[in-house]
């Protein structure tokens, strides 16, 4: 599948991925993050049951401490 990940086109071997799969495959391990798919905020407890598919716009935003 082809998706947009953080504003950049990306291709994956699988036809679909859960949010958990995507974070694992891309080694996005930082815990303080926001995940949005097509502008919709995904609850942290739904990462294993939410699927990403062809054409989705996925944003993974890391929130670094400091202010």
């Amino acid at each position: 599948m082809k998706i947009i990940l953080n504003n950049r086109p990306e291709e994956f071997h699988a036809d679909t991925h859960t949010v958990d799969d995507l974070l694992r495959v891309r080694n996005m391990t930082f815990r303080m993050r926001i995940v949005k798919i097509n502008g919709v905020l995904i609850d942290r407890d739904k990462y294993a049951s939410t699927y990403i598919s062809e054409g989705d716009d996925v944003q993974v935003i890391y929130l670094m401490s400091g202010g």
């Binding site: 502008g39 944003q59 935003i61 890391y62 670094m64 401490s65 400091g66």
Partner: peptide, 15 residues
């Protein structure tokens, strides 16, 4: 990010 979320910073360096 979309119409309701904007992020400013280097998105990398923690204090």
């Amino acid at each position: 990010i979309d119409k309701t979320l904007y992020v400013v910073g280097d998105e990398s360096n923690e204090v």
